[in-house]
Amino acid sequence: MTDRRYAAFAGLHKLAEGPLAEVALAVQAAAAAGSDAPLLVFEDATGRVVDLDLRGTPEQLRARLGTPRGKGRPKLGVTAREVTLLPRHWDWLAAQPGGASVTLRKLVEQARRDGAQQRRAAQEAAYRFLSAMAGDLPAFEEASRALFADDRVALAARMAGWPGDVAAHALQLLDAQPEL
């Protein structure tokens, strides 16, 4: 969770990017300064808009957005969560070297290395971002088609007249290696 990155926009201008607490502080400062432009925060891995509670002092905001501690091995970044499987799945996992946890981690890592799945996730994140930020801009439909056709040259050409921060961030999301 601590490796996740976010980007904040004030209208069509990129305000900040980085960890959530850092981005939230920049948005809080812009709101306090009376920014007239809409302030939106996006999670880079998914392209989704993130709602933030900006109340309180910067210290209170930073404390609220700190890394949550839960069950598991926090020093290793391991978080315990419930997994529901059929009995035959549990039997198979139990028979694997290292047990269920090791096997599940290996399966997840293997899936993360699957290039097609990562490419699709990056396209979806870029599309969600572009829908929110550029849905009313000229050539949005054509840019969307180029995005899903995996035609970067056509995508860049369709976004050429758009605000630089929007086009650059969309390409940045497309190049990112999203986490599962």
Rank of each mutant, 00 (worst) to 15 (best):
R88K: 11
G161Y: 06
P38C: 08
D36E: 11
G34T: 04
A29F: 05
D165E: 07
A143P: 02
R128M: 06
E82K: 02
G161H: 03
P38R: 15
E109G: 13
A63W: 03
L40S: 15
E22H: 10
A100K: 13
F42V: 15
A167C: 03
D53E: 15
V83Q: 07
A139V: 01
L61R: 12
E109T: 09
A31Q: 15
M159V: 02
A126N: 11
L180I: 08
W90D: 04
V102W: 00
R55L: 14
A33R: 13
L155E: 06
Q123K: 09
A16G: 06
E59C: 02
G70F: 01
L130S: 07
W92C: 05
R64Y: 05
L137E: 04
Q60E: 15
A10P: 00
A63C: 01
D175A: 15
V83T: 13
D136W: 11
Q172S: 01
V78Q: 12
L171Y: 08
G77W: 02
Q123E: 10
A143S: 14
L104A: 08
Q118M: 03
A26M: 11
A31R: 15
E59G: 03
A122N: 05
F129M: 14
P178Y: 02
E22I: 10
A24R: 03
A167H: 03
V153W: 00
A134I: 08
T46V: 04
K106P: 00
D175S: 12
P38F: 14
M159R: 04
R112L: 07
V78A: 03
T67H: 03
G11R: 05
A139Q: 11
K14Q: 14
G11N: 08
A134E: 01
Y6K: 06
D53M: 09
F9A: 09
A33H: 09
H89Q: 15
E142Y: 00
G70L: 08
P138S: 04
K71M: 08
Q60C: 02
E109H: 10
A29D: 07
A80V: 06
D3S: 13
K14W: 08
A100N: 08
T2G: 04
P74F: 13
K106S: 14
A100D: 02
H13L: 05
A8Y: 00
L155N: 00
L65C: 12
V166Q: 03
D91Q: 04
L76P: 08
D150I: 02
R152P: 05
V83S: 00
D136T: 15
P58I: 08
A10G: 07
